[in-house]
Design a protein around this nucleic acid. Structure first.
Lengths: 218, 218
DNA sequence: ATTAAAATTTAGACAAATCTAAAAATAGGT
DNA sequence: ACCTATTTTTAGATTTGTCTAAATTTTAAT
């Protein structure tokens, strides 16, 4: 399993959102910042190895084996992210790039020990669930802040966009996972929100609200 | 700097034992388990980049820049080894293989944080010195047990052979770095040694003694 | 100083992963 | 059903790191 193969499997998994559906050559090329012709080549190779289903012009989807492999890479990526934040004081906008490298280290013992060192975390620093060793997922019951009704309240549990600029913005505005949040008002004109967060009040744009996941209180 | 380039620089450094001298194509090929012709190709490439001195048929040696790069990789390798042993309970015969992968992770912040987490260790689990960030070395005043006179005593500080079989042998015989050691008798016939280690007495072959480093008591 | 052996380099090939440009297949609109 | 735009694949080239086999240079022994 080469690094490139692993990256393709990961990209296909992410594009399929964990679901079954068939992914287009173009979509994969865009996600991986490569050309469609390269994707076709790799599709053949991965099909050969039984990791994807591939029929010419019909798109690409992961086999069970491919899904297992993708999940194990995602598991490694997210555990390393937790490690970097919890043990080495990285900020959540710094971890992705390094985890992209660490996820390819081949040692089952290593990642299991890291998992134990971190006390078997269930979520990474962006709120994404960490697959278990046997590839089980625990997607949290969450929704986008932008889709919640007025007066609703809950806890920030994740981000949809985990790009450094967005994460830095959140830091600057003291918006962190685990914070309580309540929607005080919605502005019809631009769909911006007046919210209460950990005591203080602030106004956030629709763009921000549509990239923040909240777990609603029952 | 590709992974392969890094591995060549490391191999050249190790073969030169940190000294200046020129290393033969064959020696590098053997160390890296590759063919001399591949070494020639890489020598040209590294010379192009100013990392080695290379003249046809005249052997290869590291430039200052090459030495700096090699030391930074060795630094990373050894720090990761300490991390694996101290933080993840790896045994000293398990760390090399994984560190071979981890040493190529590109993030200065990462390795500096690991260094700090470990409290800036000076030696790796095999007793080899860890270069500082600016490439300084602190080789310990040590000698092979096999070269010490009868009745001499000291502390085990390193191994020359750090292969898994040798390290496992040492574990099995409860010989560990930090242990005190005293030579009770030398057998002329096979040069085996009768030694006292942490209270108990044991006999070790010349082959073992010539792979154990000891720091003599003054 | 000559020459045989050993070491090293060159030349040409290959696999992996990528690209560009051209060809082929599909999809959508009428 | 047809045509066009888009998507996808193919064909051929490129880069990196490797190899084998042949040619060249160095070395060391007589």
């Amino acid at each position: 399993m080469t690094r490139s193969e692993e990256n393709y499997l990961k990209a296909i998994f992410h594009l399929g959102n964990g679901e079954a559906g068939s992914i287009s050559t173009n979509a994969i090329a865009e996600q991986m910042e490569t050309k469609p012709s390269s994707v076709t080549d790799m599709a053949k190779k991965l099909a050969e190895k039984g990791l994807v289903h591939y029929k010419k012009y019909q798109g690409i989807s992961l086999t069970d084996a491919g899904t297992r492999t993708a999940l194990s890479i995602i598991r490694k990526h997210r555990l390393w992210e937790v490690f970097l934040v919890k043990k080495l004081d990285f900020t959540w906008d710094e971890v992705h790039e390094v985890a992209e490298q660490l996820e390819h280290i081949k040692s089952e013992k290593l990642i299991d020990k890291i998992d134990a060192l971190l006390d078997f975390p269930k979520y990474d620093p962006h709120g994404d669930p960490i697959p278990t060793k046997d590839g089980k997922f625990m997607e949290r019951d969450k929704q986008l802040l932008s889709e919640m009704p007025i007066h609703a309240q809950g806890v920030c549990v994740g981000v949809k966009d985990s790009s450094a600029p967005f994460l830095k913005f959140l830091d600057k505005n003291k918006i962190a996972l685990g914070n309580t949040i309540k929607i005080l008002d919605k502005e019809d004109f631009d769909q911006s929100l007046q919210i209460q967060m950990e005591g203080r009040e602030l106004r956030i744009s629709h763009q921000i609200a549509s990239n923040l996941y909240v777990k609603k209180n029952d």
